[in-house]
């Protein structure tokens, strides 16, 4: 079953076309990697899908529902959650309140709400910092908090924008384990990532964006073998080193 269908999606910023006729779909329960060089339009694509920005042309269907024109909060309530490339936690709230707020907008109240906050804090290994002001968290913890907050919406689709960037090797291992856990729970994920180790580890399929166009879409091994992808993003040395 297809959960997300993107058809001929385009986006212009003034005279600059940053996305050109992007078409792809995501099957429910799948994990799809989205890679490409800086400026390829990956974050713009996520912003369009999440309702943070409006497309210039094309269509986005989420669970058979048109998303075009819906504000971001309505898109979120439909079950489409996201994280941000540069962490955006609610710095005036504690870690627990960040998660609690998202679960509350989903409609949870009372004991159910508190149980969900604890469950997500446990899942993201943040239980011991639940009362801590979120502005005092490390980058790795803020990234995990963003993920916990997104999961509090009980998403059908999770858009992860460079959730691993800036993490040290041990933090990275834990983050990969966490994504694998989510994958096992059946959450559909679109994962933007520069770290190919992560993409190769968790993705069923990989999309490659280059200068606003989709240049490859297929299984990870097939995509990294593509000469066009090597030329545009990976470089030939990546394949030789594998």
């Amino acid at each position: 079953m297809t959960i997300l269908q993107v058809e001929n999606l385009s986006k212009d910023f003034g005279g600059l076309r940053v996305l050109e006729n992007i078409t792809f779909s995501l099957a429910a329960g799948s994990v799809v990697g989205l890679i490409g060089p800086n400026g390829a339009g990956k974050s713009t694509l996520v912003n369009l899908i999440a309702g943070a920005d409006r497309p210039t042309g094309g269509e986005i269907l989420f669970a058979s529902r048109r998303l075009a024109g819906l504000p971001a909060w309505r898109v979120a309530r439909l079950g489409l959650a996201r994280t941000f490339q540069i962490t955006r936690v609610f710095t005036d709230l504690s870690l627990g309140d960040n998660i609690r707020l998202a679960a509350w907008t989903r409609g949870l109240r009372g004991k159910g709400l508190e149980a969900e906050v604890r469950r997500l804090a446990d899942l993201t290994e943040l239980s011991d910092k639940i009362a801590k002001p979120s502005r005092d968290l490390t980058l790795a913890d803020q990234k995990r908090l963003q993920l916990a907050r997104a999961l509090a919406l009980k998403p059908k689709l999770l858009l992860l924008d460079e959730v691993m960037a800036g993490l040290n090797p041990s933090e990275l291992d834990r983050a990969i384990q966490l994504l694998a856990k989510l994958r096992n729970e059946g959450i559909t994920m679109l994962v933007i990532e520069h770290l190919m180790r992560v993409i190769m580890n968790i993705s069923d399929r990989v999309l490659v964006l280059h200068q606003g166009s989709l240049i490859a879409d297929g299984p990870p091994a097939e995509v990294v073998a593509s000469s066009q992808v090597q030329e545009a993003y990976l470089g030939r040395r990546y394949v030789q080193n594998r």
Binding site: A50, G51, A52, P71, A72, W73, A76, R77, A81, R82, F84, R88, V89, F90, T91, D92, L93, D97, R100, L101, A102, W104, T105, R106, R149, A150, A152, L153
Partner: peptide
């Protein structure tokens, strides 16, 4: 929670919308 909603808007309005808040 309404107060937390307002504080979330103050912190980051786009992120507040992304968690389903009608800002």
């Amino acid at each position: 929670q309404y107060g937390n909603t307002l504080l979330a808007i103050k912190s980051d309005e786009s992120a507040a919308q992304a968690v389903g808040i009608n800002t």
